[in-house]
Design a protein around this nucleic acid. Structure first.
Lengths: 242, 242
DNA sequence: CTAGCAAACCTGTTCAAACCTGTCTATTTA
DNA sequence: TAAATAGACAGGTTTGAACAGGTTTGCTAG
């Protein structure tokens, strides 16, 4: 890993890294709770006896990892609930084990027509971009989630079918197309997998999975995305702050 | 199917946003009814421990959304009439709206000592009030949920063991004792019932149930209650607006 | 009984001070 | 020479206070 290389080059761990590691440990151990505010950068300067630039570099790496988010004039907040891989809006999906690399396989990327979904979502046009993905643990090769996204077609979206997803991320693609999720709804229930999904997940049919349905809307209340996820309960839990 | 509804609070919120979010939740959930008057700005200043300007910014966003209107010299009033039956604290109401009568049986009401739970919640004292309940459909006689609450012991709580719950409701009892939940966290996952719980629920051992863990805190960040619920997935789904 | 008035609330408005992050640069350190 | 420091500055956030003026209540003088 890059981290090891860096340390090999400079035996005395870089200071920003030390700051990040200590804070990360506090976050992962729960000493810094989800949603709680970190000390201000100047307070961290005093605590770690380093310069503010150094503190900021440490915070930056934590932000890159998605452990914290920082807001101008306010401060930094823990946005990590224990073992999150996706701390977007709504229920955060939490992995029950950390330090595992997740591999994402694209099953399908095409335009589809789904009248009943359009009716459910109260849309006038039945055309959607379909993005089906399977995520699995790289090490064990075990499938942990099946995700089927449907994005109502509008100008600038169809090209994705030919060009592929931006940086492999659907949300990045949507934001680039001007579709920014602002709020929405999410449902969660238990589903016993059918034969097709069970085969995809590599488990016996009828296995109980967590099924979430997420409906994301933009600031003008247009549907941005509708996602149905099947989550292996051995690896995922849902987390919510209220 | 009964739904457990929740409303998410964004983790990294500026103070005016926090004020607005909490009040909005109270309005949308019906805790603040249409036409009712909000607390005065100075009362909100004390409740949220922020300055009056901050409270006013929060109220301004609610007014912009049309949820309240404010009148000089009088105060702010709820002007939102769509009543969403939602519940952040106590979801029996979500059930009763489904025209099914729910029966609650008290399994246990006593003081317990649980050092590991105290450690998990980062509490100094291991003493809790334990309230275990089973809810079932009156008509079918079928158990739909098993609920185990733990309330950190403090003055005025122990007497509950002798006197029983106020109006049969734990949250009413807690509010009477000055414990008012303001926010918290919730986890949801799948649990295959063990023999004891399966017998309680009247299902075969190993049946997949929805398991939710809810941690409620008051405005001063003290733990109010920790509840582990086992929910029959045939009767419950989780719903979230964000 | 009533008109007037003052006290005690309430919201509306403004503002400076204190803190916060974001950004840049010159300088020191290993 | 790269890493770390120290400082300055811009601009967002929150506070605390002051003052203006609307609304209600209750007392009081007429």
């Amino acid at each position: 890993m890059a981290k090891i290389k860096a340390r090999a080059l400079s035996p005395a761990a870089a200071k920003p890294e030390r700051v990040a590691q200590i804070l990360e440990r506090d976050i992962l151990s729960g000493r810094l709770r989800y949603g709680s505010q970190l000390e201000s950068e100047n307070a961290l300067v005093r605590r770690f006896a380093v310069s503010r630039n150094t503190v900021r570099k440490g915070l930056e790496t934590l932000a890159d990892k998605g452990l914290i988010t920082t807001r101008v004039g306010i401060g930094s907040f823990v946005t990590f609930d224990g073992h999150t891989i996706d701390n977007a809006l709504g229920w955060t999906r939490a992995l029950s084990t950390q330090n595992e690399t997740i591999e994402t396989k694209l099953l399908r990327l095409e335009c589809v027509s789904d009248a009943s979904l359009a009716m459910t979502l109260k849309l006038s046009l039945p055309d959607f971009l379909a993005v089906d993905r399977v995520r699995s643990l790289k090490a064990a090769g075990r499938v942990v989630s099946i995700e089927r996204s449907r994005v109502p077609l509008r100008s600038g979206i169809e090209s994705v079918v030919g060009d592929g997803l931006l940086k492999g991320s659907l949300s990045a693609t949507l934001i680039a197309a001007g579709l920014r999720g602002e709020g929405g709804e999410e449902w969660a229930e238990i589903e016993c997998l059918n034969a097709v999904d069970a085969a995809l997940a590599g488990v016996p049919p009828g296995t109980a999975f967590l099924r979430t349905r997420r409906l994301v809307r933009d600031s003008e209340d247009h549907v941005v995305e509708y996602v149905v996820s099947l989550l292996d309960p051995r690896h995922f839990a849902l987390h919510l702050a209220f």
